[in-house]
Design a protein around this nucleic acid. Sequence first.
DNA 1: ACCGCCGGGTGCC
DNA 2: ACCGCCGGGTGCC
Length: 868
Amino acid sequence: MLSFCRDSAWKYLQSTHLGGDRTYSHYTSRDFSSQFGLEDFLCTDDIPGTDEDTDSAVLFGTLRGNVVGLRYYTGVVNNNEMVALQREPNNLYDKNAVKVNNVNGNQVGHIKKELAAPLAYIMDNKLAIVEGVVPYGAKNAFTMPVQMSFWGKEENKQTVLDKLKMHGFKLAPPSKSNWVSGRAGPSYSAPGHAAVQMTTEQLKSEFDKLFEDLKEDDKTHEMEGAEAVGTPLLPHQKQALAWMVSRENSKELPLFWEEKNSFYYNTLTNFAEKERPETVLGGILADDMGLVTMCSALVNLNTELLLFFFFSVVFVISFQNKGLSVQSVKKNDSEEGPRTTLIICPLSVLSNWIDQFEQHIRPDVHLNIYVYYGPDRSKDPAFLSKQDIILTTYNILASDYGSRGDSVLHRLKWLRVVLDEGHTIRNPNAQQTKAALNLEAQRRWILTGTPIQNSLKDLWSLLSFLKLKPFTDREWWHRTIQRPVMLGEQGALRRLQALIKNITLRRTKTSKIKGKPVLELPERKIFIQHVTLTEEERKIYQSVKNEGKAAISRYFNEGTVLAHYADVLGVVLRLRQLCCHPHLCTNTSSSSESTPEELREKLVNKMKLILSSGSDEECAICLDSLNLPVITHCAHVFCKPCICEVIQSEQPNAKCPLCRNELRVEHLVECPPEESDSSIEKKGDREWISSSKINALMHALIDLRKQNPAVKCLIVSQFTTFLSLIETPLKESGFVFTRLNGSMAQKKRVQAIQSFQDSQTGSPTIMLLSLKAGGVGLNLTAASRVFLMDPAWNPAAEDQCFDRCHRLGQKQDVVITKFIVKNSVEENMLKIQKKKRELAAGAFAAKKLTVSEVKQTKINEIKSLIDL
DNA sequence: ACCGCCGGGTGCC
DNA sequence: ACCGCCGGGTGCC
């Protein structure tokens, strides 16, 4: 049965993404490659052995032990209730102490010391995860039994068994009845009622269906927009609105809770308490139309909701009351409780929210909207709590939260917190996630196009944010849902489905309302235009390629390819740059030993290369854009706060999350004060030359202008310096253009977007856009042509970029041109992309890969990239 | 009796 | 704890 774990469906579910673990040491080559934007190309499933992932755990066996000292603690349990075992190394009486807590986190007792001794060793060395259930005797006065399950990696099994044996304990071998079910006890997994395992296909298809259109009445019911909303709502918006309003007014017990003789029981953990578990007022809006329309639609929806609560009347009344006006607002002022909605979004979407509020709220309705952003942001709680809406970004939230967690945003209580692009918080260890989870709010919403990106694990932070008991604690989520689902238990999958259904609204591009598609968009066509390098360009390309090839061949011969990954990717990066323009490739070939100052400079250069390549500006720890980037001696770039936290928590022997090299705070090199403009100018000092790609682009642009001078274009590249180089011929040919970079200040961004979207003659017809400059929300519908100057590793990133103009509001067909250099790494990238797409879309029958096979795949991909 | 046995005091880690 | 364990009291039959 366990062999199931190793097949592909399991892999699919367990994902290649980072997920919830306690240590940083499981960061794998995937994150490593993400520094170079290769994350989706290399198919880097976690390499076993570097991964502390609990999902790869198997059940070693079970053991009956005793909980003692019950009379000293207030925590109570029920028979068959799950309990948590927690190490208490600072216990005065026994450094091996292991606490036993109930689901609510209240201490029930301790594990008897004889057993605690081996347990402490096992837990401290992370040899196994130990989980407990109290089978009976819950009402005992002094001691009670506890049935323990030991889960861990196969290779640790023997150590665990030996350690226990040394202390005279022996695990009962795993048997079906006690491992299949994630449930707490026999009352829920009666023998003979054992869970049915699903086939790979079933599991995959069930998982895909998790977020499919839900046909319940409460989700197809429509609701009219508030009077205060200036624009009429589309049917799917009305639906969503109705659903959201019903969620915010819900009086229902949360899922998996039952009321039983004046107690509230959790059916997953068998936990019971007198206090009613809080109803989750909110949920997840997971419209994948998001990529096209959802920003505007959701903002619209949220405006409604905000207004709805703002006016503090039942929605139905508010739209019946045609005379709704500012007076109603006043009424709210006297009421108790928080009145402010806090919206957190990526910086790239911030201006969209502002725009949308401006566009959709009737001008005579006054809302206090404050953008909590920038160095001068007000930190006056009195002022902030008077706002109706506060907009801020994840980075601001996280940096305010800092290490002490006492920011003004965290001191205030909110009427509502809305997380836009909610998957931003999928990494439980990220500072942004921690900061978001610690906000106090009455109502909580998550907007995301991708609720589960790759893994069930991604869901935990979201549920935790929603304060869905008992999942706020990762252990209960893992024990009751995540692991049982991974193990293919049908009951668990049903529970998960019920849960998702209960709290999410999802419509897809293909969703229909009353037989009509929710959304109709103009066509989108993609053309690939091949570019041939000039002889001179080809010479340079070939020489760099040969040099790189030689180095990589050497690594192959030495068998150290994976160890030299950074260098390999560096070669690939340089080749990609050379396809665009010879000046992009600033040679950073590493030479032998050097002085600390030289080393420092080299590191700074390397960091700048990574930052300016535009290919990826993510920190592998928080998975978000780099905040105060620093580079380690092993040449990996992280947010300073993120890496400092890692170093802090792993003291004294902190290791790089990416390569496990030794790390020290004093070795971190910071990015010197921004001189991006001057560095561009420096490059400008170099005499400008064109390139084949630029020629191809200019040719197309001039042609287009002849046909229709009003057509607007996006010129997209991952390399911001390339965009700078393109500026010169644009100016020469008299194009009016604007530009949007990831690094631009908010004000400038807004300006750039507004001027581009403007339809007046004389407004810019071209926008230079860095591939990842904008989040999902960025609205550039003025453009109907896109020129993608260089292929992205991640086809999804390309699609997301195209969707910035191919979205609601686009009236014309969108034509996309991808420039691809013939006989180059770019063509190989396309091939690999295609292969990957087919693999993802096709049958899910791909065989399980062994460690060596995974490595071989990677090596093959490197080979095919540089024609080895 | 450097034992056994009795029965009171006592009780997590 | 209606247990175990500890350590003091005690001691032929």
